[in-house]
């Protein structure tokens, strides 16, 4: 049902919002970001299915591709920063760069 899908998507978005604002760990911040993007994908997919908005489905594919790109670049940046400055969290990286 469309209503269940939408309520679920809002719940997933809220969990992602909570995770992104309460975690220090880079891994969990990335997980939260993926949850935010997936809740939007969920809304697009279920509206394509139930509301005759078939244009939303290719947009969902595009979101998945952009999310992959974002995760790849984010992990690459953080791994490079960790190799060079030996920091573990984004806060430490910020302090290191601002010195």
């Amino acid at each position: 049902m469309f209503e269940i899908d939408i309520v679920f998507a809002f719940a997933l978005f809220s969990i992602g919002l909570f995770g992104i604002s309460s975690n220090k760990d880079f891994l969990r911040i990335f997980f939260s970001l993926e949850m935010l993007i997936n809740s939007v994908i969920m809304i697009l997919a279920s509206s394509a299915k139930y509301l005759n908005l078939a244009d939303n489905l290719p947009l969902a594919y595009m979101f998945i591709i952009i999310a992959t790109l974002e995760a790849a670049v984010g992990i690459l940046i953080f791994a490079a920063a960790n190799r060079l400055t030996n920091v573990v969290t984004p806060d430490e990286l910020n302090e290191e760069l601002s010195q």
Partner: peptide, 17 residues
């Protein structure tokens, strides 16, 4: 990709804010 990230950066868990 995340698994590669964990192996590169380490498995240290930072407590929540």
């Amino acid at each position: 990709l995340m698994l590669f990230g964990i192996t590169l950066i380490g498995r240290e868990y930072k407590p929540s804010r």
